[in-house]
Computed example of a mutant assay.
Amino acid sequence: MNNSQESEDHSKNNDYQTIEQTMEKLSGGTRRLAAQLTTSASFDSLWNVLTDYDRLNLYIPNLLSSKKIYQKNNNVHLKQVGAQDFLGMKFSAEVTIDLFEDKELGLLKFSLIKGDFRKFEGSWKIQNIKDTSKNSLIYDLTVQGCQWMPIGMIEKRLKKDLSENLLAVDKQAKLSIN
């Protein structure tokens, strides 16, 4: 890792959860963000929430819609629309992503097919924490905005959103315990 990387811990006292987060500034206005949450939610409940593609917008903040438009075996295409409020202005972005499911590894890897970004790729990963009944939920995202998208302005918002997304998935997984 290089000098342009920042690391932060965000605690939610009411849930006793800590989110570890890193952010790297890459060339061309590209950012790589990663966030990790330790949870007591089971692997299966986390996996079921993350792969309930047509309902993700019901519990992930700022995701207006999520629709599965193609599936063949472990390959899925999703069309998603997200929205943000920046300085009183409504900003929305649409992506169509190619997603590969590897349940054995607890990995959902995605990349951009088309959309409002030059780059939008990453993964969700669920890992058991050795010698515990807890799991680690990791969200990794590399994003590069289009020319009109001020990445510096939305950088802080992206970091906040990653934490909120992890907490939302965790909360939904705990509500839908198998």
Score class of each variant (00 low, 15 high):
G145K: 09
W124T: 10
G28V: 10
K79M: 09
Y70T: 06
E155V: 05
R118P: 00
G106N: 05
N14C: 14
F91H: 06
A34K: 14
G29N: 11
I151A: 15
T18H: 13
K156A: 13
F43P: 02
L99K: 03
S4D: 14
N74G: 01
I19N: 01
S92Y: 04
V143F: 02
D15R: 15
L158R: 02
K67V: 04
G152P: 05
V49K: 05
I138R: 11
K156V: 04
Q80E: 15
K159Q: 11
G82A: 04
G29I: 05
K79R: 14
E8W: 06
A35T: 08
N14P: 06
C146V: 13
Q127V: 03
I177Q: 00
V143M: 09
C146H: 11
R55F: 05
K103D: 00
S111G: 10
A168F: 00
N165H: 07
N2K: 13
L107V: 10
M23E: 10
V143W: 02
K130H: 10
D9C: 09
L37H: 04
I151M: 15
F120T: 01
S65I: 00
M1H: 08
S163E: 14
F86E: 01
L26A: 07
D52G: 15
E8H: 07
L87G: 03
M23Y: 10
S163C: 15
V81A: 07
D102G: 00
S123H: 15
L158W: 06
S92V: 06
H77T: 04
G82Q: 07
Q80H: 05
K90V: 09
L46A: 11
D52R: 12
M23A: 14
P61H: 08
N14E: 14
K119V: 15
L158M: 12
D85C: 07
A34G: 05
Y139H: 13
E94T: 14
K79Y: 09
I97F: 00
M153K: 12
L46W: 06
L137C: 03
L50W: 02
D54P: 12
L108T: 11
N135L: 09
D44C: 00
D85M: 10
Q84L: 15
I60C: 08
N57R: 06
Q172F: 00
E8Q: 11
T96A: 08
N48V: 01
K68W: 01
K174V: 04
T30N: 05
G28K: 14
R31A: 00
A83F: 07
F86W: 09
